[in-house]
Design a protein around this nucleic acid. Structure first.
Lengths: 215, 215, 215, 215
DNA sequence: TATGAATGAGGGTTCATTCAT
DNA sequence: AATGAATGAACCCTCATTCAT
């Protein structure tokens, strides 16, 4: 596919006054509602502005374009979830497998709770996906997981650990999306999280065993 | 998210004549090229018609709307891949785990090979996702996998098997998408397929062991 | 000044049918009216379409963008005037100075006759000025004038002749614009043409004399 | 073309305080930079204000609208160049033709030196052209040139002199614009000034000769 | 049956100007 | 006096779909 322009996506200016902060917050909340209610294809700046009770002009004073709003939504979400998951992975008093399971469960539930928003954001991904800012988020996430992996798989070589981290991250995040897309109930989501936890622990354990057998 | 109109998506009329079949095929091939070359947002009926060397009018004789073309593309793809994977899973002379691994590998590679098309189709998913026909495909896929699971996990209860099938299917398909989206090399894709095979086998094995321990 | 994108400006497709030709003609005529009536800043595709009794969509089927309409207007005008002037300059039975004077007069009058259009087109020049097609027109004009100069100034060196041609061309065209901009009466325009003719002839004569004195 | 509203264009209030003068000067300098850097279509009040380090509100305290800024730029330029040229034309110890040539040269060079600004101002002309203040400038210029003509062509009738002045003025100014638009080098500009000087002198001389022959 | 011209609502974005603070 | 947030009409352009030929 031809690479298409991916225009600036970062916030146009940092809201400096109370008034502006309120406006930015209003816009973002309105965006969430529009996205969830109307879906990605009907997510337009005009609709967001109207929903926010604000003029389009004002909206464009704080977001350089439509993509920026979506990216901001996604970015905020990543930040929140990221912090949550990091907290879980860092509880060093618990055994590593338990932490992994908890993390998966927390992640799946958080995806499920705002399923319609998640799906819509996913649909809108083509609009912000190519921005360089996205990389950073991904890398931050990777660093967090890697820190956990270093602790959980000390015997395994660095390169293998690195691969495992990428593999686990992709798997969790991809399956998480699917779980939210199918909008299952809380208990059903738990079942999925359990299975995923099982599977990942089995995988990590196998990595360790293999290492031991090599000696 | 509000359920939006999901207009008819099935072919408008079964192509009854050689001429028509040719036309439908031309359109679909053109659609693939347009999608891969221009991406989902620039996938328009006009462009497809032009690429196919056909008039828009003719195109609308055989497809009720744009979504129908996309759905047909996806549908054909599902049919093909489904058949391929079923073939692999059904090779009853090989051990089940080997078959599972082969299947994952075949699937990941097929996703990778037409990555740009896959990504574009994924981007266009909101346009056809809500159609009822999609369910059928999913169910067909499930049936196939279930048949394999019955054979691979005979000791496990039917309900557990059913869940495992859904879980495995979702995981493979979700991660497969990610793999194609990142457009990795053949060898890198192999590494991912290997890891995924490992992980799934570990998971299934664990299901069996747990059953045995319960006795 | 930073160079800004100058998107394609040539006709989108050659009108192939009677119907289309009619449409293109209607649009161009409407464009002339809009330009003359409302001025360059209010020259919008919507207004042109409405004036032409045509939908915007149709307009965009034959012109890739607004600039293209303006360029086409200018281009047609250049073609017409160019042919007219070439005819005058090529009347080899008349003395060269007479031809030059006739040419200036014809040019000034043609500029005056559609003064408001000319002014508006001039105002819109920034929109099409950077297109490569414009160069061609200028070069065609230069070639024509140069042919005349070769005949009128045989004694003068080629490089001097070339410079003189550029100089004469720029002068006539620049002053012609001013004349039309000030929308003078026919007789006043004649006076200006006369003066310009005098001046140019004096200039050319001086070039020749200087050459002779060098010998 | 319909006469469109030409809103007040003169400075909103005479800057009475040092602070205000500074602000007006800052805005004008910023305007020059914006115009030269971004071109006429991107010349916006917001950009000018930002470049000047001033709020839009302040800007509107001293200029009633965008056009006023542009007009002021043009006006200042006219004043400056006018004074320069008058100085040259008034050097009564030199022969008239020499003065005329010097004047042309000075004018062409001054146009060339700030070519991008000149072009942009020219592009913006539709915005301020219709203002009555423009007439005054033109008339001031005419008075200056006329004074020179009276001295250079004493034998010629007043009406003829008057016409000649208008003709010379228009020619120089029109061709000057073209020269700056094509952004030639200093030496090339000199060549053009030389030719223009030659031509104008030949023209004036011819006027005189014709007068003498009439006697 | 095939064509492709025609439609026009709707999309994203800009900008001159005002006015509450 | 100075600020700069807010406005919203207006702009250019696209595209799914129809229908006269």
């Amino acid at each position: 596919m031809k690479r298409r322009k991916s225009p600036a996506i970062s916030a146009r200016k940092p809201p400096q006054q109370k008034r502006s902060e309120r406006l930015v917050a209003d816009v973002l909340e309105a965006a969430v509602r529009v996205l969830a209610r109307e879906g990605a294809p009907r997510f337009t700046t005009a609709r967001v502005a109207e929903e926010a009770g604000v003029s389009v002009g004002s909206l464009y004073q704080y977001f350089p374009n439509k993509e920026a709003i979506l990216f901001r939504l996604q970015s905020d979400e990543w930040d929140q979830t990221g912090a949550l998951l990091e907290g879980i992975l860092a509880e060093s008093d618990k055994p590593a497998p338990d932490r992994l399971r908890s993390m998966v469960s927390a992640f799946f539930q958080s995806e499920r709770e705002e399923a319609s928003l998640r799906t819509a954001l996913e649909d809108a991904a083509p609009l912000y996906r190519d921005a360089p800012e996205v990389r950073e988020h991904r890398e931050t996430g990777m660093r967090r997981l890697l820190r956990f992996m270093n602790e959980a798989l000390p015997e395994v070589s660095a390169s293998e650990r690195s691969f495992a981290a990428a593999f686990v991250m992709t798997t969790i995040s991809a399956v998480g999306k699917s779980v939210s897309a199918e909008a299952r109930s809380k208990s059903e989501t738990d079942a999925w999280a359990l299975a995923m936890g099982d599977m990942l622990c089995a995988y990590l354990q196998r990595l360790v065993q293999r290492k031991r057998e090599q000696r």
